[in-house]
């Protein structure tokens, strides 16, 4: 485990705690896309099914269980506990347009044509684009609470930090994972516009507002 990966994982953990904190303290899931959160449940379950047949480390298993459990808990908070605060009329991105291409990509690009590996590849592609309903919603409302932008920044930083990790692993272990690398670059790329506004506005003490 190198420092980039570790920081990436910490950033991912932090993003979930920030999101939970936002929902609990404001007692609202306003500004959060249910569709994106539901896609993360699909991503984690599809990818971490290997919990049942592969043991890597305590760290690895604990993180996988945490990501599955926390993503399900967030859905519960959004759909049941704070349901009235969720406005489905602005959360309208068609997730079929993400699921179908990801399934096709997974069937074409995988390391072995079996159920678990195709599902793994599917989860990698789906994770890359799962943020789109959220970004689409942000685009529609044109603004966001600061705490929501911190959540998105931590979530975006997580996969961005995996990129130097992959470079490091290539040089130190000779490992290359073209599927994860390609999807990871796409995933990070989707955040570029957001990061620009986050760094130039939110971190300068201004409100997150997109130009009209």
């Amino acid at each position: 485990m190198n420092i980039f990966r570790f920081l990436g994982d910490l950033s991912h953990l932090a993003s979930i705690f920030i999101l939970l904190h936002k929902i609990q303290t404001t007692r609202s899931c306003r500004g959060i896309s249910f569709r994106t959160q539901a896609l993360y449940v699909v991503v984690f379950i599809a990818r971490y099914l290997d919990l049942f047949f592969r043991y890597v480390s305590l760290y690895n298993s604990a993180m996988k269980l945490f990501f599955i459990a926390s993503s399900c808990y967030i859905l519960y908070l959004m759909k049941i506990r704070y349901r009235p605060t969720h406005d489905p009329s602005i959360d309208t991105f068609r997730v079929e347009y993400l699921l179908a291409p990801c399934l096709i990509l997974a069937l074409i690009f995988n390391y072995k044509f079996n159920f678990a590996e195709v599902l793994w590849s599917f989860s990698i592609w789906l994770e890359a684009v799962a943020i789109l309903p959220q970004l689409f919603m942000l685009q529609r409302t044109g603004e966001a609470e600061n705490i929501t932008t911190h959540y998105l920044a931590a979530l975006g930083a997580y996969r961005a930090l995996y990129i130097p990790n992959w470079i490091y692993r290539y040089f130190t272990e000779g490992l290359v994972d073209p599927i994860a690398v390609t999807a990871g670059i796409v995933q990070t790329g989707l955040y570029l516009d957001f990061f620009y506004v986050y760094f130039t506005k939110v971190l300068q003490g201004q409100k997150f507002e997109l130009p009209a």
Partner: peptide
């Protein structure tokens, strides 16, 4: 065996 991915990443 063709390329295998590192199984330790999240």
């Amino acid at each position: 065996d063709p390329a295998v991915r590192p199984k330790d990443e999240l």
